[in-house]
């Protein structure tokens, strides 16, 4: 009995979940990177941009934080073909996750941008920096250090909401789990393993983010240890 169970896990569950995990990683990594980029761009636009740019940034965040993620996913995958734009399940998912993640990242980064002492902006202008140079060389390097814990939090969250991709037939970890469980009715076993894989991914991400925080720590910007 137990033997059967172990064989089922070894022969059916593990290969399928390995495949699914790989797809999940392929969804998460680019979405996290694009998300941070969108967050940096939109936050900078909202804090330092001209009125029009600022309005565009505010609208972006309002829409992409306001619409439920699943609805966004449906629009990109099922809705766009009506306008002649066809995205594969994978790309529809990456686009959705990147834009949604970017909207949340935007808030973390905006907060960090606002925390930078204004005097430094005057200091930068006084030596002849343009507005763009000031933002790129003075404000962002500091703001990103301050935003890192928050941005990390959003990436952890992204790892888990990437499971929604299976709703548009991008069969990643959760999707594989669903297929296996429906076939065998071993919901507890399969989803326990699926959950454990997510836990593992989150642990790895946490470790990487902590290393980044350490790597970029400089005196005056340490994260105070509780």
């Amino acid at each position: 009995m137990i033997m059967d169970e172990l064989l089922y896990i070894q022969n059916d569950v593990m290969p399928a979940l390995m495949k699914g995990t790989w797809i999940s990683v392929l969804l998460i990594v680019p979405s996290a990177i694009f998300g941070v980029c969108m967050g940096v761009l939109s936050a900078t636009a909202r804090v330092y941009g001209h009125r029009v740019v600022k309005f565009a940034g505010d609208t972006y965040v309002l829409l992409f934080r306001g619409f439920p993620l699943l609805i966004q996913l449906y629009i990109w995958y099922f809705g766009l073909p009506r306008m002649g734009i066809y995205l594969s399940p994978y790309w529809a998912s990456v686009v959705t996750f990147s834009l949604c993640s970017g909207a949340y990242q935007s808030e973390y980064i905006r907060g960090a941008l606002l925390s930078i002492k204004q005097g430094q902006l005057a200091g930068a202008r006084a030596i002849g920096f343009t507005q763009l140079q000031t933002v790129v060389h003075v404000v962002l390097p500091q703001a990103l250090r301050r935003a890192l814990p928050g941005c990390g939090n959003e990436i952890i969250y992204l790892i888990k909401y990437s499971s929604l991709a299976y709703m548009v037939t991008c069969i990643e970890l959760t999707g594989q789990g669903k297929i296996l469980a429906s076939a065998s009715f071993k919901y507890v076993e399969v989803f326990s393993i699926v959950g454990a894989v997510y836990l593992l991914l989150v642990s790895m991400a946490t470790w990487i983010l902590n290393s980044l925080e350490k790597r970029f720590a400089i005196p005056g910007f340490e994260q105070h240890q509780a």
Partner: peptide, 15 residues
């Protein structure tokens, strides 16, 4: 850039 400015609270770049 031709006019050097020294501020009361230094305004060094903290990073």
């Amino acid at each position: 850039r031709q006019v050097g400015m020294i501020f009361q609270d230094f305004n060094l770049f903290d990073h």
